[in-house]
Design a protein around this nucleic acid. Structure first.
Lengths: 150, 150
DNA sequence: CGTGAAATTAGTTGACC
DNA sequence: GGTCAACTAATTTCACG
């Protein structure tokens, strides 16, 4: 993982549909080198996935809710159990374990408020590990540019 | 935007590196039809972007902080002003306007706590629109599968 | 909208410096 | 690591039904 890898990742996090020749031009290298590096970054799971980002506004029915969760956390294995449950729940598109006012922050993406109500009732109220949660309904996705600093 | 478009978007949100032949196979259509539709979805900005997702853990230095923000919101134009500021701030990778305990939820991605401190001082403390904010530092990105329901 | 063929471009491999 | 050549595969355009 050197500076060239980092420049490659920086570009691919904005656009992964460039040809290796175009990528090489942008990062100041050769197409062959870029291909080798990108393939390695993919097989090493530094690049987790290659996806299209879809505009929810273009589709109508899609509700995002940011949920903060506090756990009953005397037992560490309950934290792991909660993580597993979140990974297995399709409505949860993002989940972070955090410090501060909450233990976890979830992004829940559902069709509408009824679907969110079902989610809350089946995944949070019925979970004895969950002491408390707060829901913040997204009115506007002002910005969405997932990336990490490289 | 019909059911086939939705199936296409559903696949591309998981993997955008399939050939049109492979995509056609998965959604039950022809490669030519898939190509026409995908190109239209891109030009219509239903597909906002095509990107690689990078694992922050594989890179070391990358700190994510979820920040809730309350604004002084007597004036609606201050909300727009704040949105513009967030869109223009590179450390903010996600920004949602929400109902509930806060007015906005931010995802701030920086190198380390020092860089977060700089962000807080230059972008939040100095912003007279910001009444209050709370920071939750991400200890673990348990799940990250950005998508919308289609 | 689907098919198939042709032209173009991109991805991949291997040899070489 | 860079370059070149050769091969394979994908994309794109077009004609046709």
């Amino acid at each position: 993982m050197d500076d060239l890898d980092r420049r490659i990742l920086s570009v691919l996090q904005e656009n992964n549909r460039l040809s290796f020749a175009e990528l090489a031009e942008l990062v100041g290298s050769s197409a062959a080198s870029c291909m080798r590096r990108v393939n390695k970054l993919r097989s090493d799971k530094v690049i987790i996935a290659d996806i299209s980002l879809v505009d929810p506004k273009a589709l109508g029915k899609s509700l995002t809710v940011v949920v903060t969760v506090e756990l009953e956390r005397e037992r560490l294995d309950l934290v792991d159990e909660f993580k597993r449950a979140m990974r297995a729940t399709k409505e949860v598109t993002q989940c972070y374990m955090v410090t501060g006012d909450a233990d976890f922050v979830l992004h829940v993406v559902v069709e509408d408020v009824e679907a969110f109500d079902v989610f809350v009732k089946t995944k949070l109220y019925t979970n004895p590990n969950v002491r408390k949660f707060r829901s913040m309904i997204a009115l506007d996705r002002v910005k969405f540019e997932p990336r990490v600093n490289v």
